[in-house]
């Protein structure tokens, strides 16, 4: 139960801080117990960041903090001052999709799309430190992101395809990825 002031009304309790989200500085006021997830979705209306448990178990809410994947449901908004936050809304440059966004769309790696933002950002962080990861390295990096639709396969293939394209190739998906095996 929250403490009430002398007049029976709740005390003013919001903190007012400056956050840097997707390269833009923004001022925001919110209750200090709010998680980064809540601040992003409720106060900045960046609803591209999803939630599946709010307990740090599913990976849906992953965002990048200074380039590293962080579960935004476990991070406090107040602790984010001075950090660079990237959400899925910040991945495309203008109308040009990030190669990962492009390959996820091409291969149907986003079925219901709900786990997609967290996976895209986690994969982006991986590719920035390891530009040509092996299948096992991708699996390891994404092991904390649950997906119930795809069986992960199209996701792994989309990360590999994006990595190949980012390395400068004109890579196309394998025929079996699109049509199945002969």
């Amino acid at each position: 139960m929250k403490p009430l002031g002398k007049n029976g009304r709740k005390k003013l309790e919001k903190v007012h801080i400056r956050l840097r989200v997707n390269g833009e500085e923004t001022e925001v006021a919110f209750a200090p117990h709010k998680t980064l997830l809540e601040v992003l979705r409720e106060d900045l209306r960046l609803t591209g960041t999803k939630h599946g448990c709010e307990l740090g178990e599913c990976g849906c809410c992953a965002v990048l903090v200074d380039g590293r994947p962080v579960l935004s449901c476990l991070a406090l908004g107040v602790a984010m001052e001075g950090h660079e936050i990237t959400t899925v809304e910040g991945m495309a440059v203008g109308t040009e999709l990030h190669p990962l966004q492009q390959t996820f769309a091409e291969l149907g790696a986003a079925q219901c799309g709900y786990c997609t933002p967290g996976i895209l950002l986690t994969a982006k962080a991986l590719l920035e430190t390891n530009s040509r990861p092996s299948r096992d390295e991708i699996k390891e990096a994404l092991a904390g992101n649950l997906c119930r639709c795809t069986g992960y396969i199209k996701i792994l293939e989309a990360v590999e395809l994006a990595a190949a394209r980012m390395a400068g190739g004109q890579a196309e998906p394998a025929k079996e990825t699109i049509y199945g095996w002969e």
Partner: peptide, 30 residues
């Protein structure tokens, strides 16, 4: 080619791997 029955049957859209109409909205968080 396996899975490309549509092409064999003279179909132009059916049987082809078109990107889903909502795929990009899902991938940009929109």
């Amino acid at each position: 080619m396996a899975g490309n029955n549509g092409g064999k049957r003279g179909l132009r859209v059916v049987g082809k791997p078109f990107v889903k109409v909502d795929a990009k909205a899902k991938c940009i968080g929109e």
